[in-house]
Design a protein around this nucleic acid. Structure first.
Length: 427
RNA sequence: GGAGAGGUGGCAGAGUGGUCGAAUGCGCUCGACUUGAAAUCGAGUGUACCGAAAGGUACCGUGGGUUCGAAUCCCACCCUCUCCGCCA
């Protein structure tokens, strides 16, 4: 959520930043805001008067006045009149506040100053590449991951349709073991450098979904449990953000680094024809997420560290990848600055997103009301939050199956995973 | 699912209609004492909004209601705990 005060006081700046993403008209919001403040002023003056009256009734009675006498009676009437006026203003003010809130909840974060300006993913900026892209020699048979996976008998899509729907997968044998190995490897790596491992609820309530930015705008993309106010988490970012919702942390607690493995559930509304085969786009997938609550002064440095932590997984797995900085038009709703990591998929001959690392600055902190207090300083400040996949597990498996595929149809296990798997290859 | 108890400040906990934003204790901050520390003593210590400021308003789980006045009374909801049932 953006800061209404900032919108009020630096309207042009905010508008210019928002326009890098799309087109936004802030005038209606500002209009509501000034009406609301005017009403608030009048209402609080009336309330002050009402408190006055209430107090003096008490004083009179204690001083011996007749509670049923004229003096008290006229005060009561005065009190009633003020109360009636307040009663007229209150609903209006509440309505205005609700309108302001609902507009604020749909405004995306402002792109950072350093974010490249652009309209779509075509305008994202490639920053660096790591590793050698594997390009199959002529006549060499390189299968896409879903074909090699089915051939090896470790992954089944047809039967998953029977169990659930399309866009689900069932892993068996070495496939299941590889998924589990990847999760353990990633968690071990991150906890090894100080991330605190979390295994959160994966059903989350609406307040949590709003706190981390999924609601109200992206309700269609979530799976909802109809009889309860609970949603299946689309990402561990939701429970992790809300771990500290409505809390005031102390400055010396920061930074707080968490990592979490969770399944993630997404309807993928609006991407019906895309990536219909394989592990790339499923309704349910596994992800290891990294999440940081940090001091505002260090959040951009922390983003670099977070991205490096995600890259390290790819490097240890020896998977070629590239790093993109998202342009303003492709930035996610919560983010002010985002690096995407894309892994090389030989079957497609291109890079596919495997991690997204974002600095959300105070956007989620304000939404979820997560603040910190600096000792000795008055008041509180919103924390800055960052999140990054480290990594999307299914896509990592896809990349391994394709990049580690041998001409004879077997798949080698990356060295760092061998101790987790207990084998050197899947055949 | 059934029965009961309860939700108050960073924490513990008092407060059943009127100077209660809220006693007290712990914690925390500053100071005194001390070679230093502990202990002790003294002072201070919620958040948000409006306002240039003075100041004002709101907040005792949430939302309504009664009243001149509500942490306190009434209603609804949410949550937590205990016991019983069921269960990995």
């Amino acid at each position: 959520m953006l800061d209404i005060k900032q919108i009020r006081n630096q309207t042009e700046k905010v508008k210019a930043a928002l326009d890098k993403r799309g087109s936004y008209d802030l005038q209606p919001l500002l209009e509501l805001d000034s009406q609301q403040r005017e009403l608030e002023q009048r209402r609080s003056e009336l309330q002050a008067r009402s408190n006055e009256v209430g107090k003096s009734v008490g004083q009179k009675i204690r001083a011996g006045a007749d509670p049923k006498g004229d003096e008290v009676k006229s005060l009561r009437e005065a009190g009633n009149q003020v109360k009636q006026e307040i009663g007229e203003l209150e609903p209006k003010e509440r309505e205005l506040k609700a309108q302001i809130e609902s507009i604020l909840l749909t405004l995306p974060n402002l792109p950072s100053d350093s974010t490249p300006v652009g309209k779509s993913e075509d305008d994202n900026v490639e920053l660096r590449r790591w590793g050698d892209e594997l390009i199959p020699a002529d006549g060499e048979d390189r299968l896409p991951h879903y074909e090699i996976g089915e051939k090896l008998g470790i992954m089944n899509f047809e039967r998953s349709v029977k169990i659930a729907q399309s866009r689900f997968v069932t892993l068996t044998g070495a496939g299941a073991a590889l998924e589990r190995s990847l999760i353990s490897f990633m968690l071990d790596r991150h906890t090894g450098v100080g991330y605190n491992e979390v295994l959160p609820p994966i059903l989350v309530n609406s307040a949590s979904m709003q706190g981390s930015g999924q609601l109200p705008k992206f309700a269609e993309d979530g799976f909802k449990c109809d009889r309860d106010d609970l949603w299946l988490t689309p990402t561990a970012e939701v429970p992790l953000t809300n771990l500290h919702r409505d809390e005031v942390l102390t400055a010396d607690q920061l930074p707080i680094d968490y990592c979490a493995y969770t399944p993630c559930f997404r309807r993928e509304a609006g991407s019906y024809g895309r990536d219909t085969r394989g592990l790339i786009r499923l309704h349910q997938f596994n992800k290891v997420e990294m999440y940081k609550f940090v001091h505002p002064g260090s959040s951009f440095d922390e983003l670099e560290k977070l991205t490096a932590d995600a890259e390290d997984i790819l490097q240890q797995l020896k998977l070629p990848y590239r790093v993109l900085e998202l342009c303003s038009g492709d930035l996610g709703f919560n983010a002010t600055k985002t690096y995407d990591l894309e892994v090389w998929l030989p079957s497609a001959g291109k890079y596919r997103e495997i991690s997204s690392c974002s600095n959300c600055i105070d956007f989620q902190g304000r939404r979820a009301n997560i603040r910190f207090k600096e000792s000795g300083k008055k008041g509180t400040e919103y924390v800055h939050t960052l999140n990054g996949s480290g990594l999307a597990v299914g896509r990592t498996m896809a990349a391994i199956l394709e990049n580690y595929q041998k001409p004879d149809g077997t798949v080698e296990i990356p060295e760092v995973l061998q101790k987790y798997m207990g084998t050197q290859a899947i055949s």
